[in-house]
Design a protein around this nucleic acid. Sequence first.
DNA 1: GTGAAAGCGCTAACAG
DNA 2: CTGTTAGCGCTTTCAC
Lengths: 339, 339
Amino acid sequence: MQQPRTRVTIRDVAEHAGVSVATVSKVINQRYGVAADTMARVQAVISELGYEASLVAQSLRNHRTNVIGILVADLEPFSTELLKGAADAIRGSGFELVVYSAGGRTGDVVGWERRYLSRLSGTLVDGAVLVTPTVVDVQYGAPVVAVDPHTGSSSFPTVDADSLRGARLATQHLLSLGHRRIALLAGRADLQSARLREQGYREALAAAGVPFDDSLVRVGGYDAELSMLAAHELLTAPRRPTAVFAANDVTAIATIDVALALGLRVPGDLSVVGFDNIPESALCTPPLTTVNQPIRTMGERAVEMLIQLIREQPVERTHLTLATELVVRGSAAPPPAAP
Amino acid sequence: MQQPRTRVTIRDVAEHAGVSVATVSKVINQRYGVAADTMARVQAVISELGYEASLVAQSLRNHRTNVIGILVADLEPFSTELLKGAADAIRGSGFELVVYSAGGRTGDVVGWERRYLSRLSGTLVDGAVLVTPTVVDVQYGAPVVAVDPHTGSSSFPTVDADSLRGARLATQHLLSLGHRRIALLAGRADLQSARLREQGYREALAAAGVPFDDSLVRVGGYDAELSMLAAHELLTAPRRPTAVFAANDVTAIATIDVALALGLRVPGDLSVVGFDNIPESALCTPPLTTVNQPIRTMGERAVEMLIQLIREQPVERTHLTLATELVVRGSAAPPPAAP
DNA sequence: GTGAAAGCGCTAACAG
DNA sequence: CTGTTAGCGCTTTCAC
């Protein structure tokens, strides 16, 4: 095989083989109407030159690329895990996977999503999966599936997890261990998932006849640093809670760190329950009791749904909510004996 | 803004604005020679229609996309971490990042790399970073930087970490703690990094006057499952080692799991040192003593180098080997008192 | 069975 | 200042 300075194009192949570009194209695409020996000759030149058709030129012509795009705001544990599920679903589907990351750029997130979706759809990708998108209502030239969109009412087909039930389970777990002063380290108020987790917490409290106490709620914004501050406030207050339900694992782990730094034992003095079940949650000390969100499965389902959409096959349900479940590990235990 | 069923093209904009496509193009690309009011009118139509130029058509024309591709075999901790570094380096560079994942496909890895590189280069991406590539010698239409290539002698500009020194540090650490029976859980023999780590291990042993013992070496292949088997063999042998140096963190963690399952205390009965310093290594129990490989920095450097290459700026060094260092945590301690 | 020609969406050179 | 034209690499009629 040669090592061309510049890309080898279909023209180069045609010239070397002494045929027209049309014929080469037919060979590449296995069309009928090419003599066996011509075919063989062209094939030989193709491998001699190491020719590969340009993805760009092909998609410009075909409007079909067999590529699925996934747009993520950043590569953090959640999106990374989801990507793996997507990769699982892609395998054997005949599609390829391309990931576009905004690289954690803050501020312009909405613009980025819209711009990319628009620039890619109909050309570079046959469809796209939007991970935790902020944009939910625009129609593009290609099918789009949203995973865990920031607002509940999306006009896109959507895959998410049952945050409401998960939060209820987590809170019930703490209640059944005997806790009554259960703090909530909430997520971001602008996100649907965060609102549902707070609602679940309130419902479980109400069902158990425990009054909701505003002073036990702090906003952690799904963010580690912010949560450390919030947790510190919570844990140094005069009557500190005996348990914390954190809206995601990252902030739950931050809470444990703060508690340990304050000399509290976990779960001896403070129980903590998280949400997400990211890989790190099993590895921290103590291992985190949390709510499993089937992140990988969400990625799989989203890609499967998207492929159906692309193939214009009927999609049974356009809003899929996957079940969450409690994963009991070591960070929650009965409260210390009342003073 | 409208919600077109199909992609809106430059033609649509031109028609709506009552100008030619060339003029629209000039407006988009901020070329001189457009009257202010024409410009305004076109801009208005653009935002009214929500037009975005097709990435595909642009790159076919321009041979310049301001997009950098990163090709990874799979999305595992190493590549994910590297991606983050790459994302850091991209920010503010004027380039965008696109990740292509083979999705852990085994077997066809080489073919995939070659095919993609070939299909993308010169068109969709201005250059590419290949992560742990098996292909190292082919020239493409666009610059390529390899990270931690599988064979040492790559003709690509390369970024890697000092595996040799890192392995020596790890082994010396165990030696200085008093260990003499130090096992090696090796990586894959076909990989440069694995060979260097074995060599470092041997050199440190030799320097300390400890004879190399073949029976203390097993191949873990950088793979968790394979390593659990190997570790089991090692730890159930008649004279088991007092320490294990694993060629990467994933296999080190697997070794700890096996040791604990066998009722051994870590580091009381068995010391373990890993290599990579992936995030998980700090979170496992006990926290892993390991060799830090600046993975994120490798991603950054690779992207920086690639950008220089794309801009045809001189690159000071085409083979960058980043320093490794020992990170002492809790998984290595002096050996149990000799029997 | 094969090739000439048109065109996907866009940009650059050149005329007007 | 604006439009016409050519062409990026490829596929697809449609003549020959």
